[in-house]
Amino acid sequence: MKILVPVKRAIDYNVKVRVKSDQSGVDLANTKMAINPFCEIAVEEAVRLREQGIASEIVVVSIGDKACQEQIRTALALGADRGLHIETEQSLESLQIAKLLQKVVEAEQPQLVILGKQSIDSDNNQTGQMLAALCGLPQGTFASKVEISGDKVKVTREVDGGLQTVSLTLPAVVTTDLRLNEPRYASLPNIMKAKRKPLDVKAAADFGVELTSKVKLLKVEAPAQRQGGVKVADVAELVAKLKNEAKVI
């Protein structure tokens, strides 16, 4: 079975975020970028399914400017078979991304699409669900366990009250949560091999999808900084402050 894994290039999760002084956005110049952590978990899950003999081919797709080919190569080094780069200089919103991915799903006909549940930059948590709806597919979001048997996939989902399990008929869309797996590190030989794996490039404009969003970004600001308070000497002083000063107990 074929698995499609869309991945996003995002700021490295260790990097401190700086807001631009003109409030136009976050300063990404000379910033370390990486494959979005949830997307990396998606790649890992696909690779594990192939190692179990369930998947036969893993296709990785990324949408963005030329630089996101780096993240496709990373996914190829982790074990994906071929890459597709949909090139655009425009910054796209989830709905536009989902529409482009819908075209890829129509062309590639994967049995399973695995994506990260959200990216750590825009924090939207939308693309997988939108893609599923556009393709008329069932979805298993925030997955902490994925089990395939026959034409079904059983997905254990992390929900607010605990865990929920759903059974989906393939083809289906799964989005990953943090505890689904721990991604491996790419070995040097695999990094070298990834350079020779096929990577197609297509222009986003050629897909016949309206790429402009109706949501305008007006400004981006730094959050209000919380001021640290005082250190207390012992429990008695803490309880006294909470009672008399904060008046919360």
């Binding site: 700021i11 976050v26 924090d123 109706k214 949501v215 305008k216 981006v220 600001e221």
Partner: peptide, 16 residues
Amino acid sequence: RPIYAGNAIATVQSED
């Protein structure tokens, strides 16, 4: 809405 895990705060306008 917060973005970047709350390290930046975005103001957005929707024409939908």
